[in-house]
């Protein structure tokens, strides 16, 4: 049943043009220049230093590297990162 639903979801997105981040439980990342990264729908903090931030997501991890990182705000499933962003990488399981 669950697997069947999972297979059906991408179909919904494509055929009914629904917003992908709502239907699929994938993170939504908003980047403002090199200054801010806003990540919604993540699954928790894994590591954080002033040069690196790693977040869990539904199918893997998101790694953000850069300099002078400060977590401006941390809410459940939402994070606002400030600093100089250099790289955003998706690490799949």
């Amino acid at each position: 049943m669950k697997k069947w639903l999972q297979r059906l979801q991408p179909l919904f997105v494509k055929k009914l043009s629904l917003p992908a981040d709502l239907i699929l439980e994938v993170p939504r990342i908003t980047v403002v220049g090199q200054l801010h990264v806003y990540i919604e729908n993540h699954r928790g903090l894994r590591t954080y230093t002033d040069q690196e931030l790693t977040l869990d997501s539904t199918d893997g991890m998101i790694q953000i590297t850069g300099k002078e990182f400060v977590i401006k705000m941390m809410l459940p499933e939402e994070i606002l990162l400030e600093g100089t962003i250099e790289d955003i990488t998706f690490l799949t399981k």
Partner: peptide
């Protein structure tokens, strides 16, 4: 606890 935290610095 659902505590909101801001300005986290390492």
């Amino acid at each position: 606890l659902g505590i909101v935290v801001w300005d986290i610095e390492k």
